[in-house]
Design a binder for these strands. Sequence first.
RNA 1: GUGAGCGUAGCUCAGCUGGUAGAGCAUCGGUCUGUGGCACCGAGGGUCGCGGGUUCAAACCCCGUCGCUCACCCCA
Length: 422
Amino acid sequence: MKFQAIKGVRDILPPESALWNRVEQAARDVFGTFGFAEIRLPIFEQTELFARSVGQETDIVSKEMYSFQDHDSSISLRPEATASVVRAYIEHGMQTLPGNVKLYYMGPMFRRERPQKGRYRQFYQIGAEVLGPSDAPGIDAEVIEMLLAFFERLQLKGAVLNINSIGDKNCRPAYVELLRAELQKVREQLGADSQRRIDTNPLRVLDSKLEHEQAIIEKLPHIADHLCAECRAHYDEVKRQLALRGITYQENWRLVRGLDYYMRTTFEITAPGLGSQNAVCGGGRYDGLVELLGGQATTKGIGFAIGTDRLLLSLQESGAGEVEGGLDVYLAWFGAAAQTAAIKLARRLRDAGFVVELPAVEMKFGKSLGLADRLKARHAVILGEDELAAGVVAVKNLADGTQNKLAEQDLFSYLRASHASD
RNA sequence: GUGAGCGUAGCUCAGCUGGUAGAGCAUCGGUCUGUGGCACCGAGGGUCGCGGGUUCAAACCCCGUCGCUCACCCCA
């Protein structure tokens, strides 16, 4: 036990890896039908890209990014993908593409946080972004619809959509100051963490989990009551657009984002079975980000990121995580001549799409079938001297023990029929 | 960064008031040279996380350290 995976990273082993593939394939299928196309991004970028998008002063940059010196520049493992998508959008002049650009991505992200349930240092996200000239509320609603369609496809149970509007640069600063002022009045009743947040990030007081702070927080002013007319209208229309799509949601006035470039629509989906970190997806509108990273000020953006690790946790928790796989055929052979025939038969079966295990060395049939059983093969195809002489194969159903002798051409239809009836 | 709980075989765990390690499952082999699941027999696999201390003697007691898990902080 000399080497082990470093803290916060893990191996994804079979059979769980099959579930990962199913989830990622479902994302490609569903997002594709909404007209999204995949963007494959680098794993690292200039540190400055992330620092700019997140703001220099937070300890996200100083403590939680994997940054290192590469010759004379600092680069960082990506902690998220939105900054990279925006960088690529600007770098490749995608504002000249017709309409809004709809992109999705999936892959590992890296944050140096203390691991806990559903939180790893190398974790995975599946995300999508819409970038372009329009900030129509219908886009917000469609992005959310797509997300829910994806979760539906996976039969995720117990997902709850929370939405909020956090205003924009016209109305949020005034709200934040109002909030700060109200918090000052109750400062002494708050815990040390919340007291600190009054100064550093008043919005974050709203998602405090401390029991004794809840009653105090409930009385704080709601941002929904302090939106400017434009944000108010946008938010109302987002809700109407969700209703048009038959989407049920919870308005959660305490759902916030920490960074300045976020504005208006904010949403989050929680799912059961996740422990303390119970959000399986977060998203929102970030109309200021393209400009912040050097693009056109008129470019709007909205997107989301799904925590794939957590999505899988929740699927497994609810029993929707079973992926059936396994062997169709265990090809038991004995004797040199049978091996020759078995090698050729195995290839033909595989070409036809069957999952075939072909023993590499000669084994007695008893041992062979024992292995077939433990490998959970559906059928054993038996090929020995007798079958060879008769020009047939024996095929045994390992679940019920029935066995038939078939000509090779009949084997394929036999297997296909039994496969279909599973 | 903070706090709590836990570290004995691949896995799940037992191991009494200290007397230098065991079970079940899994793996491999045999009973079984043409047929799996069952049964029986056998084998491999552990410096008891690591280091120090106490003791005639430590998996067990003490100190330290590392790791894992969960929660807080943070959350792009």
